[in-house]
C-alpha cells in the first residue's frame, strides 16, 4: 500500500513556565499510514494525541522528527503539505456561527483558493450526503449540535484532500446522531477513497469505522495494530464458565495459582468463573481442576470483548506493539 503519511521519530516537549519543568508530550513516535486507510488514533486524556494531530496538521512544530504528507515534508513546505490535508479539530467550533451552512462551505472553499463556482457541485453533493440540504440557508447557530458536527466534517470533505483528520467527530452527540455520523463516515470511506485519521474516545466509532488503530499513552506509541486483529487477539482468551455448584477453597486456590487473570462470581443465580487463558489449550487445565471435585459445568461461553475493554487493557496493562511476534504465533 502506498504511504501517504509518514511520521518518523516525532518528539515534542513543553516547558511548564512556573515549575520550569519539561513535559514530554510526544516521545519518539513513528508510524506510516497508507493511502485509503482509516486509522484510529487513541489514547487517554493527556496521552499526546492532540499534539500529534496538530503536528500532522502543521499547527505545531515538532522538536524532533519528520512528518511527510504525500511525500512533502510539512515542516519545510508547510503550505504545500496542507494542500493534501484537511481537518476537523474542534468539531462544531470550527464553524462561523453567523454564516449559513452554505456560506460556511463557500467561505472555507474560498480560503483554500477555490472559486465559488468550482465547488458548487461538490457542495450540493456534500449537502445531500450529510443530509443538510434542507438546512443550507440556516444560520449555523440555529442548528443542532449534531448538524453542526456534520457540517464541520462536510467542510473538511469539501477540500477534497488526500487525508482528512477528525478529532472527536462524535463528541457530545446523542446516540442517534452519533450513529448517523458513523454511517456517513462509512459511506464517505467507501465513496471517496480518502485516508481518514480519527481521534476519538468513542470506541464504537473506532471499532465500526477504523481498519487500524494507533494507541498513544504518556507520549509513546504503545500499539499500532489492525482493529480486527486486536479484537481476535483479545476475544480468543476470555471465557465465562457457569458452574452447577460452588468451587471449593482448594479449587479456588488452584485456579488462582494456575491463571493470572480470573474472577470468581458468586452473586449470580449460578456461580461463574470469568477467566482469561494464555492459550485455548489451557481450558483443559481448568477442567482438570473442576474435575477434582466433580464440579458440574453448565455452560462455557467465549466472551465477546468490545473495543473499549481492549483499549482499557492496552492502556492499563501496557500491551505493546513489540510483543507481536509471540502473540502472532499464538494466533497462528
Amino acid at each position: 500500500m502506498e504511504t501517504i503519511i509518514n511520521v518518523s521519530h516525532l518528539k515534542k516537549t513543553y516547558m511548564k513556565r512556573k515549575q520550569k519543568e519539561v513535559i514530554t508530550a510526544v516521545d519518539d513516535i513513528s508510524f506510516q499510514i497508507g493511502k485509503g486507510e482509516i486509522v484510529g488514533l487513541l489514547g487517554p486524556n493527556g496521552a499526546g494525541k492532540t499534539t500529534t494531530i496538530k503536528m500532522i496538521c502543521g499547527l505545531l512544530k515538532p522538536d524532533q522528527g519528520v512528518i511527510t504528507i504525500n511525500g512533502i515534508n510539512n515542516a519545510k513546505h508547510r503550505l504545500k503539505a496542507l494542500q493534501h490535508i484537511s481537518a476537523v479539530l474542534e468539531g462544531n467550533r470550527n464553524l462561523y456561527w453567523r454564516l449559513t451552512v452554505r456560506e460556511n462551505l463557500e467561505y472555507f472553499a474560498g480560503n483554500r483558493g477555490q472559486s465559488k463556482k468550482a465547488v458548487t457541485n461538490r457542495i450540493e453533493s456534500l449537502l445531500n450526503t450529510f443530509r443538510l440540504k434542507d438546512k443550507e440557508h440556516e444560520l449555523v447557530n440555529r442548528l443542532s449540535r449534531g448538524m453542526q458536527q456534520k457540517l464541520a466534517i462536510a467542510v473538511a470533505m469539501l477540500a477534497n484532500t488526500d487525508v482528512i483528520l477528525l478529532d472527536e467527530p462524535t463528541l457530545g452527540l446523542d446516540v442517534e446522531t452519533s450513529y448517523e455520523v458513523r454511517t456517513i463516515l462509512k459511506e464517505i470511506v467507501e465513496k471517496e477513497q480518502c485516508t481518514i485519521i480519527i481521534s476519538s474516545h468513542d470506541m464504537d466509532v473506532i471499532q465500526s469505522v477504523c481498519e487500524r488503530t494507533i494507541i498513544i499513552n504518556n507520549g509513546k506509541m504503545i500499539t499500532n495494530e489492525r482493529v480486527d486483529r486486536l479484537l481476535t487477539l483479545f476475544e480468543v482468551r476470555a471465557y465465562t464458565v457457569t458452574l452447577g455448584q460452588p468451587l471449593t477453597e482448594a479449587q479456588q486456590m488452584a485456579i488462582e495459582s494456575a491463571f493470572s487473570s480470573y474472577d470468581y462470581i458468586t452473586n449470580q443465580i449460578k456461580p461463574m468463573i470469568n477467566i482469561e487463558l494464555p492459550s485455548p489449550e489451557h481450558i483443559y487445565q481448568l477442567f482438570d481442576i473442576l474435575k477434582q471435585e466433580q464440579t458440574p459445568v453448565e455452560s462455557i461461553d467465549r466472551n465477546t470483548i468490545n473495543f473499549e475493554e481492549i483499549f482499557m487493557k492496552i492502556v492499563k496493562e501496557g500491551y505493546n506493539h513489540g510483543n507481536h511476534t509471540s502473540v502472532s504465533s499464538e494466533l497462528a
Binding site: L59, L79, K80, Q83, I85, S86, N94
Partner: peptide, 18 residues
C-alpha cells in the same frame, strides 16, 4: 475563542495571506 482560527491555520493559503 470560537475555534475557527485553527481552520485558518490549516489553510494552504497561509494565515498571513488570509
Amino acid at each position: 475563542t470560537r475555534g475557527t482560527f485553527e481552520q485558518l491555520g490549516m489553510s494552504p493559503s497561509g494565515i498571513w495571506r488570509i
